[in-house]
């Protein structure tokens, strides 16, 4: 396993997680969560779990992001924290 690539992925995942809960715009938060899901998918592909990575890329990063965007567009983008 390539150790530096592993560390880069873990760093990006943690940065995306922190950014997704601190940004003050809900649509941006949802988009950052989609990026988080794709980084997580890369991480699983690198751990050898290719089936889980496929499922994550299609189900969680695809359908989950679509559901969240639809919910934000149906309600509001404004948030206090």
């Amino acid at each position: 396993m390539n150790i530096p690539f592993d560390i880069i992925l873990q760093l990006f995942v943690v940065i995306c997680a922190v950014a997704a809960i601190t940004v003050r715009d809900l649509l941006s938060a949802v988009m950052i969560l989609g990026a988080y899901s794709f980084f997580m998918c890369l991480m699983w592909a690198q751990l050898g779990a290719v089936d889980v990575a496929f499922t994550e890329a299609s189900v969680s990063a695809g359908i989950g992001t679509i559901l969240l965007v639809a919910a934000v567009l149906k309600t509001t983008r404004r948030t206090k924290d």
């Binding site: 809960i21 809900l26 938060a29 934000v72």
Partner: peptide
Amino acid sequence: IKKIIGMNI
């Protein structure tokens, strides 16, 4: 929505 994002993480 932020709570739901936290649940997903």
